[in-house]
Amino acid sequence: MSRLFLLLSMVLCLTTGAQAQERPAQELVTSLSSDLISIQSNFTGTEIVIFGQASDIQRQPNDPSSYELAIVVEGPPQDITTRRKGRFLGVWVNREAERFQHVPSFYAVASTVNIGSMANRTVLDDLGIGLNHINLAVSGVSNVALSDRDDFRRAFIRLRKQMGLYSEQEASITFLTETMFRTNIPLPANIPVGDYKVKSFLFLHGHVVAQTEQTLAVAKSGFEQVTFEMAQSYPLFYGVLAVSLAIFTGWLAGVIFRKD
């Protein structure tokens, strides 16, 4: 009985092994240095390290036909209004506005080479890889002329880059061995809280041959979280608390510095 079992398991092993060899797709495995970023009162930004392994790739540097990697870190979606100032009665005021819907609140992409050379435009647009390929859907109501819409898109990306919330780093994925790679994605101090997605793509000849997706949570913790929760869920109590603290501080100062 035990001999039969051994035989059976050997056969099973052999067949699965054969299947693995036949399979054309490459395996891509990635891992994050941490899957929770907690924001505390001393938070001034941090970075996450993404490690990974892509098996069965013969990668030659500077060979356009070889395997290339792109890793995208995307924050929870936001609706963001972009406004442009114009002169009105001699004063500069916001005139036109364009509302972008469901855009990532944070977006960082790291890649092995120039993103444009990894695949053609449609592929990149579909997957949303690269700052020029993020889907910036606009709302129906807008007073922006069609010819100006690209200006608003460019301004939006530029402002987000200035805030450190959007970034694109070419050639920032480094290979440690033939198949193992790593990259660092900096997370600035002003990152929004929420659930982030970390997507990795393995390209060959302009097509995605393997991809992974992982989640990363960014959350306030400790005092920061308690305060924020209180302000959101019990605003009346929070307001009264703020006033009481203020009156107490003022009264205390009056007592301490009393002259007589």
Binding site: K85, N94, L159
Partner: peptide, 20 residues
């Protein structure tokens, strides 16, 4: 600030979602 030509004509404001 109101009268001088601003350095940047564009500004953004979060309306919905994280951090709004």
């Amino acid at each position: 600030d109101l009268l001088l030509t601003p350095d940047d004509f564009y500004s953004i404001a979060i309306r919905k979602g994280a951090g709004a």
